[in-house]
């Protein structure tokens, strides 16, 4: 009894230190290496600020800041696709940073405008198709060039794509189809592609990884992920669809009620800096930087040569449109596909 008591008393007594003023708590939703690079580079520039960084996916981060609302333990949220950042802004979970966005490209400024300055674009990545050249060659399947090709029966059971109910990547694809072809036509097309889909994965990056390893022939996902896999040595070829394609914008936000707002603002300024953004390719991140003065890596998918649609983040990022489109997707495309 005493021992029990002693141990639990000790456990209760080990109270811990909360964040110091000169500590900056950052959640990073980009790739781990990029996170590490950012943290160390920021500490070099601001030796008096100690960056505490942890990597979590955007969905996990959003769930956490929602649960922590009112007494957040995070100061700034850097990286990851823009939709959850916009949702956080919409729900009042983040605050305006008031940084100067004049050097940024149009789509990054657009992000700040939509959210009332609460989130700012830091990079963009276009949606694309990847195929495993070994598999397609072995099976004698001609590679896809357009979204429409994916409806062809030659790809039966070879396409993998994420489920838009769980994955932001797949939602971007759904919204892209809607913006390219109109809502009704998009659903017909997606259902036709769905006949060739071997599985709807939960995670958005899983299909391209599966394609890299030959577990599926063709995948839909973000091109910078595909570039990275190809650069690691996988037989992956990347296609920018001929009809044009949508894109995601990675974002940075300051959490409402952050303990170290000053530090968080410094972080946002730092993250938008051209020199800092130019360093991403060092760690194999090939997204297109948002600062117009930043250098674009030669491997990066050249946004100028890709036919990009004028992606409407305000409309397709809103909860209302999202719920309606997903309900239609469930009914008309669906996993399992109702037409099969």
């Amino acid at each position: 009894m005493k021992r029990l008591g002693m141990i639990s008393a000790t456990a209760l007594m080990v109270s811990t230190a909360a964040a110091w003023a000169d500590e900056l708590s950052v959640v990073c939703s980009a790739e781990q290496d990029w996170c590490d690079l950012m943290a160390s580079a920021f500490e070099e520039q601001n030796p008096n600020i100690d960056v505490l960084m942890v990597r979590k996916s955007t969905g996990e981060t959003l769930a956490q800041i929602r649960a922590e609302a009112g007494n957040p333990k995070i100061d700034v949220w850097w990286g990851g696709t823009g939709d959850p950042h916009l949702i956080a802004a919409e729900e009042g979970l983040t605050q305006a940073s008031g940084v100067d966005t004049s050097d940024l490209l149009g789509w990054a400024q657009n992000m700040a405008e939509i959210s009332g300055g609460k989130t700012v674009g830091i990079y963009a990545g276009a949606l694309g198709i990847a195929y495993n050249s070994d598999i397609l060659e072995k099976k004698g399947i001609a590679p896809p060039q357009c979204w429409a090709d994916l409806e062809d029966p030659r790809f039966a059971g070879e396409i993998q794509v994420a489920n838009p109910n769980s994955s932001g990547t797949a939602y971007t694809e759904l919204a892209t189809f809607v913006q390219l072809f109109g809502e009704d036509e998009a659903m017909v097309k997606l259902a036709a592609v769905g006949k060739n889909v071997n599985s709807y994965t939960k995670s958005g990056s899983a299909p391209s990884k599966a394609a890299a390893r030959g577990e599926t022939g063709v995948s839909i996902g973000f091109m910078h992920d595909m570039v990275k896999l190809a650069s690691q040595g996988f037989p992956l070829k990347i296609v920018a669809p001929c009809e044009g394609t949508g894109y995601e914008v990675g974002a940075v936000s300051i959490i409402e009620g952050a303990r170290n707002v000053e530090g968080a603002k410094k972080w946002v300024e730092f993250a938008l800096n051209a020199d800092v953004q130019s360093r991403a390719p060092e760690v194999g991140s090939f997204q297109v930087p948002s600062n117009s003065n930043a250098q674009v890596a030669p491997e990066s998918p050249d946004l100028a040569s890709i036919k990009l649609i004028d992606y409407d983040f305000a409309t397709y990022g809103s909860s209302e449109t999202r719920e309606r489109l997903l309900a239609r997707w469930d009914a008309e495309v669906g996993d399992p596909n109702p037409q099969q």
Partner: peptide, 21 residues
């Protein structure tokens, strides 16, 4: 490994962190 075979644990996870929380 789940692919099309949905189970409660993963569905719960994506109900919390998915595109529609």
């Amino acid at each position: 490994l789940g692919s099309g075979y949905s189970v409660l644990s993963t569905d719960i996870y994506f109900a919390i962190v998915g595109a529609v929380a």
